[in-house]
Nucleic acid binder design. Structure first.
Lengths: 217, 217
DNA sequence: CTTTATTTTAAACGAACGTTTGATTGAAGT
DNA sequence: ACTTCAATCAAACGTTCGTTTAAAATAAAG
């Protein structure tokens, strides 16, 4: 009957759920420690500060996901006639694998990612691009290969559009799934929501980009 | 030399800038009233509460934008062979018109919209759909007309993807424009950023949607 | 000018927050 | 058995927050 989880794990498990649901600054340490059934002071004892707890929560997923994504992209890069659709689909499995590290891990990670990007202006963007820059490079490379009509600057913008689509959708994940159920009687799990996104993102990224300078009338 | 702005306007002008930059809950009334050079208590005197101030900030833009967007959509609806690209381009002018109501109004509005959607789970989503439901209906209708291969549920999802693309891009507006300048020596104003988005969104929304149920392999 | 509303002001309120403290516990090492 | 040390705990600390109060200042009305 005893709880085999360490205090540190109980904290991080409760924290990520609440962070994903309510955002970082809207989630107090008192709420986390109540939910985790540990003492308030144990957060600062085990993690140092709230900020370091947030980083630990994000790092647990990033450290698993980014290398796995890198490997999946290398693999799909061998494919001779690769489409952008294929490249995006290759990202689903590493994302879904996060469900092994933790129940609802995929949804939690994407929600946390969205929260992190929006809440703290540019901080997470910097962290990801410096700690996992090679993976981002690889994605650019694959996009360039499968959509050679795009200039590097177009690829830059469209990767950010795609990130926006992904994290905004996932940060509203619960609400959207509930509406889809109520209005269309349609059930959606995480993987369905992800796969539903792919045609949109692939078509968007590879769309022709007309010059913006010649447009007046 | 005298300041002709009322206290109420000074508050709302300072508040929207800070809300857009830092988010609602990260912006204290003390910060707003310092920036606006008014007394702390005047917020509660003129607006009642912080929550009502947030609503007033958003309402000022929504009440101008939504009717203008509605008119623009009605107009473009007359067009016999309308494309989705045209429909999206029709939204640019109402958005840019927000620069008249306030300097940098377009960027501010889109940033505020993004903050509102993400920060308070579902509250703004409910407000917009109940107060401006006809305009959203009109958009769905136009999408259905220009992309008749999509089911209503597909349109629902893709409208939210598009909203995500738009508000995420605009909430990172400053950072993205700066990176584009540094890495590609490319200058972008708000309208350029908006128009650059359109091919992506139009291609994404009108992409074919394969069935998700048959996929198992 | 006097009286009445309206607006502005300084000050304080109570609540919630992240963090620190210092005592207490319980297992490991000798 | 005694010591050591990491872990837990209740309690408090100092800040910051949104909001309220009641007096002072200003504008409007008679």
């Amino acid at each position: 009957m005893a709880n085999r989880l360490t205090t540190k794990d109980k904290i991080i498990n409760a924290a990520e759920r609440l962070f994903a649901e309510r955002g970082f600054s809207e989630t107090s340490l008192r709420l986390i420690t109540n939910k985790a059934e540990v003492n308030l002071a144990s957060v600062n004892y085990h993690f140092g500060s709230k900020k370091e707890l947030i980083q630990a929560v994000l790092a647990r997923y990033l450290n698993q996901f980014m290398p796995a994504l890198g490997r999946a992209l290398e693999e799909v890069d061998q494919e001779p006639d690769l489409t952008l659709q294929d490249a995006f689909e290759a990202m689903v499995e590493p994302l879904m694998a996060l469900n092994d590290v933790r129940q609802h891990g995929t949804a939690l990670f994407l929600q946390l990612l969205g929260r992190g990007y929006i809440e703290n202006q540019g901080h997470l963007r910097w962290f990801v691009s410096t700690h996992h820059g090679e993976v981002l490079e690889k994605i650019s490379e694959l996009v360039h290969r499968t959509a050679p009509h795009l200039k590097p600057t177009d690829i830059f913008w469209r990767m950010h559009y795609t990130l926006g689509t992904l994290v905004f959708t996932m940060s509203s994940y619960r609400a959207l799934v509930d509406i889809a159920k109520a209005d269309f009687d349609q059930d959606n799990d995480v993987e369905t929501v992800l796969r539903r996104l792919i045609p949109y993102m692939a078509a968007g990224v590879s769309a022709p980009q007309p010059s913006l300078l010649t447009v007046t009338e």
